[in-house]
Amino acid sequence: MKSNKPELIVNNKRLDGRNFDELRPLSIKAGVIDNASGSAYVEWGNNKIIAAVYGPKEAMPKHMMDPSKAIIKCRYAMSPFSNLSEHGRSGPSRRSTEISKVIKEVFENVVFLNEFPGSEIDIFVEVLQGDGGTRAAGITAASVAMASAGIPMRDLVYAVSVGRIDDKLALDLNMIEDNYSDSDMPIAVAPRDGEILLLQMDGGLSREQLSRGISMVLSAGKDISKKQIDALKENYDSISKKYES
């Protein structure tokens, strides 16, 4: 939360003209990195993110290997040119290290780790351009990458954030909203039973706002999930189409 906060709500609409429960435009493409076992490219608002999955492969270094199940490693990073303003330094920051950890934990939940004892699955999330909500967009992309790698999961996870601007709750905060919002809460969901796999929050929310915020995320999930499934199907359909007509 910064001072000199600009007006984020004008005529009961958000700065970019969205309603409070409206997502930014989202497009997902699967299979963008040839070398990876699975990959996905997501454009979500002005976010541009690539996620790729390698594995399962032999776990390295050896002492990290778990003979009973697969281990997951995750790297989340932002490009030096991802911001509108300054030139970012490459290399891990405390922020990116934390985000890498919570993303890893999301996938440890949904991937059938016992299927691949002694192996390692690597998740890479590269934020080429950032516009608020990069970790949520990164998880949504990584989930498609994991599915396109054919790694069995019990559900296709999606993530989105909800925040508070003054007394209003707003879904899927963009960069300006994220910078000046009164509260921000990214959430990752396994949609089948509505299990929450990632939850972070800062700022302030009442108990009523918390319930309403989670409900907003859960109902937005249908649209996000559909985009994810469509991206996975599109990978096949585009080749099929060559032979139609």
């Binding site: 076992s37 699975g38 396109s148 054919g150 069995p152 999961m153 990978n235």
Partner: peptide, 19 residues
């Protein structure tokens, strides 16, 4: 359709090899 919902699992059309 890429994956088929089984009891508790998505059976993917893509797949890793199980020996």
């Amino acid at each position: 359709m890429l994956g088929i919902y089984d009891e508790r699992e998505i059976v993917p059309l893509e797949g890793t090899w199980k020996a």
